[in-house]
Amino acid sequence: MSAADLHTLTGAYVLHALTDEERTEFELHLQECEACAQEVSELAATAGRLARAVSAAPPAQMKADVLRRIATVRQLPPHTPTPARTTGGTSRGRQLSRFALAACLALAAGFGGVAVWQNQRADEAGERAEQARQQAEQLAQVLAAPDAKASTGRLTDGATGTVVVAKSLNQAAFVAAKMPEPPSGKVYQLWFNDDGTMRSAGLMNPGRSTEAVLLDGPVDKASGIGITVEPAGGSDEPTSDPVALMNFPTA
């Protein structure tokens, strides 16, 4: 993917519309592109506001009307699109499709992400969207910090990991690629290595092989990170041998 293509992925990144490979490549790009980092931060804030905006209860009759009309509205036949002319190669077509998907996801963030029938679920969706917005914004800040330094190493079973540290923010991020799926009921847990004492730094998503994680907590005097396999929900301290140990970059 060219650098020009990467600049167009900010909206799709915020709305989680990228493949694992595209997400990894774009997050590495964020370390060097201040403009994209700023745009990611602004778009994440907008998505959060959209989700919080839709919290009104629907009319009491709406559910009954929808269920009644389901049996009477004819289903549309499958649509076969006419091939469009391409003058700039396949890349532009892929970007247009991606932005169409991002637009749909933006509507989902504002409307479909809340429960139609209960205000309580709408409030919960708004809280989740706000948390996701804050995490995406903080992650982008770490990756794009002027003093951000990265170190990449090979992990288990062909996986790779990149640690990014921004001392000015006292924060760090971890970008994993091709992580093997943890055993059923288990999760990868990240730990700060404080001179041999492991301090929890958050959990990875067990359903993703490629992921960028903002480490939970300040870097302080930690010299690196460790990764262990823990029961779902995480542990207060490591319960297994580390599957990986990585030192923070020093130069």
Rank of each mutant, 00 (worst) to 15 (best):
D5R: 14
L9T: 09
L9W: 12
L9S: 09
T10Q: 13
V14R: 10
H16N: 13
T19D: 11
R23K: 10
R23D: 14
R23L: 15
E25K: 11
E27S: 10
E27R: 13
L28T: 09
L30P: 03
L30G: 04
L30C: 02
L30F: 02
L30K: 07
A35L: 14
A35R: 10
C36T: 06
A37C: 04
E39A: 14
A45I: 15
A47T: 08
A51L: 07
R52L: 13
A53E: 00
A57P: 08
A57C: 00
P58L: 13
M62I: 00
K63D: 15
K63M: 11
K63L: 12
R68C: 06
I70T: 10
T72R: 12
T72S: 14
P78T: 07
H79P: 01
H79M: 14
T80V: 07
P81K: 09
P83A: 13
P83C: 08
P83D: 10
R85L: 12
R85I: 07
T87A: 11
G89Y: 01
R92A: 12
R92V: 03
G93I: 01
R94D: 13
Q95H: 09
A100C: 01
L101V: 10
C104A: 11
L105N: 13
A106I: 09
G112F: 15
G113K: 00
V114E: 00
V114H: 12
N119E: 15
R121W: 10
R121T: 12
D123R: 08
A125R: 13
G126M: 03
R128S: 11
A129G: 12
E130T: 13
A132Y: 06
A132T: 11
A136N: 15
Q141T: 00
V142G: 05
A144C: 04
P146L: 09
P146I: 04
K149N: 06
T152G: 02
G158T: 00
V164F: 04
K167V: 01
Q171F: 05
A172C: 04
A172W: 03
A176G: 11
M179A: 13
M179K: 00
P182G: 07
S184P: 04
Y188V: 09
Y188D: 08
D195M: 08
D195K: 06
G196N: 02
S200G: 10
S200M: 06
L203T: 05
N205M: 03
G207C: 06
R208I: 00
T210H: 15
A212Y: 02
G217F: 05
G217H: 07
P218F: 06
D220N: 15
A222H: 06
S223R: 12
I225F: 08
I227W: 05
E230R: 06
G233W: 03
G234F: 04
G234C: 09
S240T: 12
P242K: 09
A244D: 04
M246I: 05
A251E: 15
